[in-house]
Nucleic acid binder design. Structure first.
Length: 227
DNA sequence: CTCCCGGTCG
DNA sequence: CGACCGGGAG
């Protein structure tokens, strides 16, 4: 029987699940070129393009885009219509405008070098908490509350938290993911969680019966979502 | 916290 | 239709 204290982080269960995810990730992680990059520009671009867009979709144009636009200046020097043409397969025109404006500002105000503090990142158009946190974590290696829809679903189910539309900005979810990411390589673990949530802890019909952490998971062990 | 928005794909 | 490695406004 689990503790009656709701929403208390169990360090043992967290540690067990983390170890399982790390093990699972080694064999089952997806391979994307942007995950191998340590360039702040490429990391920023990839997160920007992944905004509300499937990873498989982005992967089809990612190499082409980085080659054509190797830095922020090259984006700032083209036209919005060129940029739209080169990104038309992934859509979301407002995002393309935002990317263009980001490139202008970074070129003009920061000499083309992406500032790596969250406050400045958040001031850029189209950059919210997820992208700012992910960029800082991936570039510097610090532990940040990176909460995309996949990670929110995973954290919510695992700890038995009610998942709502605002969970990604919920203070409790942030605390839980920060705790979960307390490893030497949070970036890698984030990728693993995302892939795990994509393949096993899916939105509909999660594969709980074959899930490696069902015994310590609130959802998979039959606890369901506690209020 | 709630709601709306967006282009594309499975 | 729901979902996508969310952001912005209210």
């Amino acid at each position: 029987m689990k503790s009656d204290n709701l929403h208390i982080i169990d360090p043992v269960e967290t540690s067990l699940a983390r170890d399982y995810i790390l093990k699972w990730g080694v064999k089952n992680q997806r391979s994307f070129n942007w995950r191998l990059s340590n360039s702040s520009y490429e990391i920023f671009i990839s997160e920007f393009l992944l905004h509300r867009t499937r990873a498989g979709q982005v992967s089809e144009i990612y190499d082409f885009f980085i080659q054509r636009y190797p830095n922020f200046e090259s984006i700032a020097e083209t036209t919005k219509s060129n940029l739209r043409e080169d990104l038309k397969t992934i859509g979301l025109n407002w995002r393309i405008d935002a990317l263009y404006d980001c490139a202008l500002r970074i070129s003009r105000d920061y000499r083309g070098i992406l500032p790596l503090d969250k406050t400045t990142l958040l001031s850029l158009p189209g950059v919210g908490e997820y992208i700012a946190s992910a960029v800082v974590c991936f570039c510097i290696g610090s532990i940040e509350p990176v909460l995309d829809t996949n990670i929110v679903r995973f954290i919510g189910r695992f700890y038995g938290l009610k998942i709502t539309d605002s969970s990604r900005r919920n203070k409790r979810f942030k605390e839980f993911i920060l705790q979960f990411l307390k490893t030497k390589n949070p970036r890698q673990l984030i990728y693993y969680i995302i892939d795990f949530a994509f393949a096993v802890c899916t939105p509909s019909k999660p594969k709980c019966t074959s899930c490696p952490i069902k015994t310590v998971c609130n959802f998979g062990s039959g606890g369901g979502i506690r209020k």
